[in-house]
Amino acid sequence: MKGIDLGLDALSFASIYFLAAIGLAVTFGVMRVINMAHGEFIMMGAYTGYVVQTLIPDRTLSLIVALPAAFAVTFAAGVALERLVIRHLAKRPLETLLATFGVSIALQQIAKNVFGTQARPLTAPEWLEGAITFNDVISISTIRVAIFVLALLFLGLFLFIMKRTRLGLEVRAVTQNPGMAASMGINPDRIAMLSFGLGSGIAGIAGVAIGLFAKVTSELGQDYIVQSFMTVVVGGVGNIWGTLAGAGLIGALSKIIESLNPSNTLAAQTFMILFIIIFIQFRPRGIIPQKGRAAEA
């Protein structure tokens, strides 16, 4: 019984990590770019949700509006970041990391200046409140189920885009061999811009989802950024299944460690990170590594 409850908790943790990390998997996996502002895109998504809610009082309707709005806002921000900054730092990954960090602190402070330091509420519609109770031990809040469904939805959407659409085909081509892709008439710059926008847009939607159960502050993104990187790195770069596996592993593990010593979540997080550091020793390329000559680049 306890095990099932734990499993459900782990599953919901995993879906949050997955949602937060999937956008990063696109930008880091496809373009080998560490976007330190990814967490701030999540934050922007959450604030977009808050703003929409102040404009539209009906919560269900506002949520329906907020999701595409958050996607649009962060998609635009991502495209702007790619065009203005990242494109000019190609082949200088460490400097990209620092430049996007500059964007990150600027965005954080702007959010603080505009929305203030206190947390803003992003309230879930009534039908998402409450919990689904199976018996005394096993219960799960509806919002977590919704997030799980959302994560599944994104996994499906991502797979559909990558495997079934022209855009996905071109993205995969650019990932594997940009020079060859360019010579076949694919514009790698355009693909980079679109995939960066897509990854950022997903971060925005993740932000709305996270905002529904967490407090919306300017530091919201910081709470998820390290875990998101861990998820991608542990899972293996350039593979959505890797991200899923990474999220699953991290979600399960943080729940298990927490349950061993429930009074001390700080210790749980410490051990979690230590585990990841040691894990990387044995699987430096993650759970599902990229293979072949492309992996050596």
Partner: peptide, 11 residues
């Protein structure tokens, strides 16, 4: 606004 200026100047 200093933090914003610092971040952007870093970019």
């Amino acid at each position: 606004w200093w933090q914003v200026a610092l971040g952007l100047s870093f970019v």
